[in-house]
């Protein structure tokens, strides 16, 4: 039960609050997602809307991993985000949790590879790559992506990688820079 011991009440609440904040900010882009899907559907690329915005959905994972530096924080951050979405966004119900766990484990792996010791551009990029691979693998099974021809499959993968790199990598690093500059973290 080492995993649970590392977490204290204050950190749990902080993580939950951050996940909820991210969940609330995600709502802003739901109309954008719908517009993109409608626009891309006639040419048969509706699912690409999901790949374009993937980085936004998965952002909480790499950020939580980087912020808390505890094993399991990326997974927990994503999972909580999906719980929020499940009860507020509501419509997708409990299956949101599965996406949350898949995305969380994806982000987590990047930090696991470095043994939760390295926190810089390198580990963040690793996390971005593992997130992309794991979530893409899941979509290959669940949404039938594995039936696409190789060229389209590769394009979708690259779109997702770029999106995840921008939001889960660059944006998370910028946020972390702001937090480090403000010294709020060292005070804790």
């Amino acid at each position: 039960m080492n995993f649970f011991k590392a977490w204290h009440l204050r950190d749990i609440i902080t993580l939950a609050l951050i996940s909820i904040f991210f969940g609330v900010i995600y709502w802003v882009i739901i109309p954008l997602y719908n517009i993109l899907t409608v626009a891309l559907t006639p040419i048969g690329l509706g699912p690409a809307a999901n790949d374009i915005l993937m980085g936004v959905w998965v952002m909480a994972g790499p950020l939580a991993g980087y912020l808390f530096k505890i094993a399991g924080s990326a997974t927990l951050g994503e999972l909580l985000g999906s719980v929020v979405e499940m009860f507020l966004g509501g419509q997708w119900g409990a299956s949101t949790l599965i996406s949350g766990i898949v995305q969380g484990i994806g982000s987590e792996l990047g930090y696991t590879v470095t043994g939760y010791k390295v926190y810089n551009w390198f580990s963040l990029s690793l996390s971005v790559i593992t997130t992309t691979i794991v979530t893409f693998g899941w979509d290959m099974i669940r949404n039938g992506y594995n039936q696409y021809h190789l060229s389209l499959l590769l394009s979708l993968f690259i779109i997702r990688l770029v999106s995840t790199f921008f939001f889960g990598g660059v944006l998370v690093k910028l946020i972390m820079n702001l937090l480090e500059k403000s010294r709020v973290l060292s005070a804790r």
């Binding site: 690329l45 509706g46 039936q147």
Partner: peptide, 16 residues
């Protein structure tokens, strides 16, 4: 919307 999107996409871009 997602169901339509995936259906049309599969019809146009795969041999399924």
């Amino acid at each position: 919307l997602p169901a339509l999107a995936i259906g049309i996409s599969m019809a146009l871009w795969t041999d399924e």
